[in-house]
Each structure stands twice: as structure tokens, then as C-alpha cells.
């Protein structure tokens, strides 16, 4: 029951953002040259940025892009972690030790530094869409090690479970054991891992964007919108500049609340 309220809030936010994008007369990259750094008005509810772009539309688009990207990246990370953890748990000791060592190599560097290094080494001339894909792909490809360790320890417990030994003794094939028994038992472990990834990826994207390594303009993103706060003239002209950060914190709190409430149920 408790999980429903944050889920409902998130659904309302997504619905609101989708409606804003659909019903607004402006696109996220449309520049209204007559309303540069405009304050709140009936035309632009939360004002415009320094290029005259509608802030409400851009925040709505950033929310949808961020959530979609983080969800896809989270799904990829969880899949990689599941494959890696299962392989390590069901291999012999030497291969398991090697796989754990590989994950430890990734964990030996601070995550944001590793992300920054990998993201900055992507091609320099890329379209905004390509930068968005690159950013979330880097997050997906580097986010798995911690998750894989959790899956590994969970899968180790499952490997030694009595029903697993019984399944082996009954002559079930490895594929049957995996599909019919192991994966359903791993689901309660994988779902929290996926949910934990979402806020972590959104924060990482915002931090990368603030360092100039996030999604390219004119595609709106949390990171790029945080950079607006650097403009003191804009901060003086309108308090709506704080809208992206306030909304980002709300989204992260909702996601955090969903993940902490799902975990005990799992």
C-alpha cells in the first residue's frame, strides 16, 4: 500500500510533463527572441532562459528524457549485473575469482571520476541525441559492478539452496533450472537493484552535465539546466531558475522512497 503513493506521484509528474509537452505551443528548442530571460507570464508560466526558450517545456522534457534514459540504462545495468553475478556464482572458483577481480577494478576508482573519464573520451563532434545516448550508455556500462556483487552473493545462496540440489538430482537441465527456478527467485533481488540505479543515474547525469560532459544542447537535461544557476543576472531576474533543481530533488526523493519501500517487500 505504501509504495502506491510515491508511484502515484511519479505517474502524475510524468503525465503532467507529457501534457505540458503536448499542449504547449512552444517546442523545447524554440527561441522566443522577444522574451529573453522573461519573468513568469501567461505565455511562459515559469519564464524563459537566456535564449528565450520556455522553461516549463524544457523542464518537462528534461524530466521525461532523464527518466527514460535512466530507466533504459538501469535496465541494461541490471541485465549485465544479473548475467555477471550468475556467471560468477555458477562457475568454478578460478573463473569466479577472475570475474570478481574485474568488478573490483571498476570499483577501485570513484564512480563519478570513472564516468567523467569514459564520457569525455567519446567522440567530440556528436549530435545532441548521440550525446544523450552516449551519456546514458556510459552510465549503463559502468554502473553494474556494485550491483553485480549483490547479485553474486544472492545467486551463491540460491546455488546452495536445497530445492536447487533437488532440481539437479531430478535431472533438470541447466536451462530449465535457470528459467523455471533461478530467475523467478532472483527477481526480488534484481528489482531493488534496478530501482536503486534510477536516482543514482539521474544524479550522475546532473553532475556530468554540470561539468560540461552531459547531454548536448539544445536537448534539455538536468545537468544543462543546473548550469543556468551560474548566471547571476538570471538569478536576480527570476526565482523560476530554481525550478529544475527543485523538481529534480522531488523526483529523486520519490524514486528513493519507491526503492526503499520495495526493498523490504522483496
Amino acid at each position: 500500500m505504501k509504495v502506491r503513493l510515491p508511484m502515484l506521484l511519479m505517474a502524475l509528474l510524468v503525465l503532467g510533463a507529457s501534457l505540458t509537452l503536448t499542449l504547449s505551443r512552444y517546442g523545447y528548442s524554440f527561441q522566443d527572441r522577444d522574451a529573453i530571460q522573461a519573468a513568469s507570464s501567461p505565455l511562459h508560466w515559469s519564464g524563459t532562459d537566456e535564449l528565450g526558450r520556455d522553461r516549463t517545456v524544457r523542464v518537462a522534457a528534461a524530466l521525461l528524457i532523464g527518466l527514460t534514459g535512466a530507466s533504459l540504462a538501469g535496465a541494461i545495468t541490471t541485465l549485465i549485473a544479473a548475467a555477471f553475478g550468475l556467471l560468477a556464482a555458477f562457475s568454478n572458483r578460478a573463473i569466479a575469482a577472475l570475474l570478481i577481480f574485474v568488478s573490483d577494478v571498476f570499483l577501485s576508482l570513484p564512480w563519478l571520476f570513472l564516468l567523467m573519464m569514459a564520457r569525455s573520451l567519446m567522440p567530440l563532434t556528436a549530435s545532441p541525441l548521440e550525446t544523450a545516448v552516449a551519456t546514458f550508455l556510459v552510465l549503463a556500462l559502468l554502473g553494474w559492478p556494485a550491483c553485480a556483487r549483490a547479485v553474486y552473493s544472492g545467486a551463491l545462496n540460491l546455488r546452495n539452496a536445497e530445492w536447487m540440489i533437488q532440481g539437479h538430482a531430478c535431472g533438470l537441465r541447466k536451462r530449465q533450472l535457470l528459467r523455471m527456478h533461478l530467475l523467478p527467485h532472483l527477481r526480488p533481488l534484481l528489482l531493488p537493484q534496478f530501482l536503486i540505479c534510477l536516482p543514482a543515474f539521474l544524479i550522475a547525469e546532473a553532475n556530468l552535465g554540470a561539468l560540461g560532459l552531459g547531454i548536448g544542447e539544445p536537448l534539455p537535461s538536468w545537468g544543462a539546466m543546473l548550469l543556468e544557476m551560474d548566471n547571476s543576472a538570471m538569478l536576480m531576474s527570476s526565482h523560476w531558475v530554481y525550478l529544475p533543481i527543485i523538481l529534480l530533488v522531488i523526483v529523486l526523493l520519490i524514486l528513493e522512497s519507491i526503492s526503499t519501500q520495495v526493498e523490504p517487500h522483496a
Binding site: L112, A206, N207, L226, M229, D230, I245, V249, L252, E256
Partner: peptide, 15 residues
């Protein structure tokens, strides 16, 4: 503390 964890480091520094 929960709210602090939900604020990206870069945003906190900029603020």
C-alpha cells in the same frame, strides 16, 4: 539528510 542525498553535488556547490 534524505533531502541532502537527493541534491547533486554540483547543484549544492553552485548553490
Amino acid at each position: 539528510f534524505t533531502v541532502l542525498l537527493a541534491i547533486p553535488t554540483a547543484a549544492m556547490a553552485t548553490a
